[in-house]
């Protein structure tokens, strides 16, 4: 049951940013993540500031030179069904289509998907973990089957977003507005590791709001895909996944981005895997080598060792499929 809060429908981004700079205020977009957190007392709020009156944050617009500008309030359904995204940024369309359920995609927004809180069952449950001001990461001594194999320290959450790895793979930028103005951050620098913060998952400062996601024009010869492995077909986050964007030239990989989901507290870019494929033809042998490179340095916990072969399997399969 939700506790009391007051409600404010922001009339402008500036007003929303002003209001949201207070620690007891939360920004409401689609609500699918926030209301769950409030219901289970994971978060508290005295006031919700709704962005839903701000049409400037809605919809998909053409960017300079053939790119796209995705308003933060664009729903995941709109992303998944947008003709140009399906054609030119299929990794993103596939990632958006893999989120939750049709209803959650109709309601959930792209901005919200990037800013959602961890799905760790200890964080969401009635456990006072480090990320909620406690002194324990319950995954360390508890059940860690869904936790991270990369980037963990003091907290072993995985980042739950499917669209984030896709956007990192597309080298997207995120436009952030706060009281002091607007800044543009590459999505690859948007998320923070537990080593940098145990209370937040992004670089957003109090009062800052994600307003837009910017996609560069698609590279010539680009191919992309998102592959997600989960326990059931809907209502599920990735056990592991991979967002891959490659640009081919003369039968060889010219540029590549390989970003993993479900394995680290942030979308996990594997530059080792990228290096393995760049300059080579995309074939089965290269896929196997890249997959092996991607899991180097993985440090599984007690229950999630399976994620190492899983990542390998996903990359072998997806890179091979992209070659076809």
């Amino acid at each position: 049951m939700l506790s009391q809060f007051s409600y404010q429908r922001a009339a402008s981004i500036k007003e929303a940013a002003e209001a949201a700079s207070r620690p007891d205020v939360r920004i409401l977009a689609g609500g699918t993540d926030l209301l769950g957190c409030l219901r289970n007392q994971v978060l508290q709020a005295n006031r919700l500031v709704s962005l839903n009156g701000l049409s400037a944050l809605k919809g998909i617009r053409q960017g300079p030179g053939g790119g796209l500008r995705l308003g933060a309030l664009t729903t995941l359904t709109e992303i998944a069904e947008h003709r140009q995204i399906l054609d030119s940024y299929s990794v993103l369309a596939q990632a958006a289509a893999s989120v939750g359920s049709p209803q959650l995609r109709n309601q959930g927004t792209l901005g919200g998907n990037l800013c959602q809180r961890p799905r760790c069952w200890y964080f969401r449950g009635d456990f006072k973990c480090r990320r909620k001001g406690g002194d324990t990461c319950f995954a360390e001594g508890g059940d860690s089957q869904l936790h991270c194999i990369f980037g963990g320290a003091s907290c072993y959450m995985v980042h739950p977003s499917d669209t984030a790895p896709a956007l990192v793979a597309l080298d997207a930028k995120v436009s952030i507005t706060g009281r002091r103005g607007t800044r543009l951050v590459p999505l690859s620098s948007f998320f923070v590791l537990p080593a940098d913060s145990l209370v937040k998952e992004t670089v957003l400062q109090p009062g800052e709001i994600v307003t837009e996601i910017l996609l560069d024009p698609p590279q010539p010869g680009a191919r992309s895909a998102y592959r997600k492995v989960r326990e059931r077909g809907a209502f599920d986050f990735a056990l592991a996944g991979a967002a891959i964007v490659v640009a081919m030239a003369e039968g060889k990989v010219r540029t590549a981005r390989v970003v993993l989901s479900g394995v680290a507290p942030v979308p996990w870019r594997s530059t080792d895997a990228e290096k393995t494929i760049i300059g080579k033809p995309l074939d089965a042998a290269v896929a196997v080598a890249a997959a092996a490179a991607a899991v180097k340095g993985a440090s599984p916990l007690a229950d999630n060792g399976y994620k190492v072969p899983l990542v390998r399997g996903i990359l072998e399969e997806t890179l091979t499929a992209l070659a076809a």
Binding site: N40, S101, R119, W121, Y122, R124, G125, D126, F127, F138, G141, G142, D143, E231, R232, G233, A234, F235, D236
Partner: peptide, 25 residues
């Protein structure tokens, strides 16, 4: 059901973490 051995509490007491088959399963 996932029980947390340290605290004796259920870790997946919700319909997301406790997974009933959907139409896609």
């Amino acid at each position: 059901r996932i029980m947390d051995a340290v605290t004796g509490k259920m870790a997946n007491a919700n319909c997301h973490d406790y997974k009933i088959p959907t139409a896609k399963d």
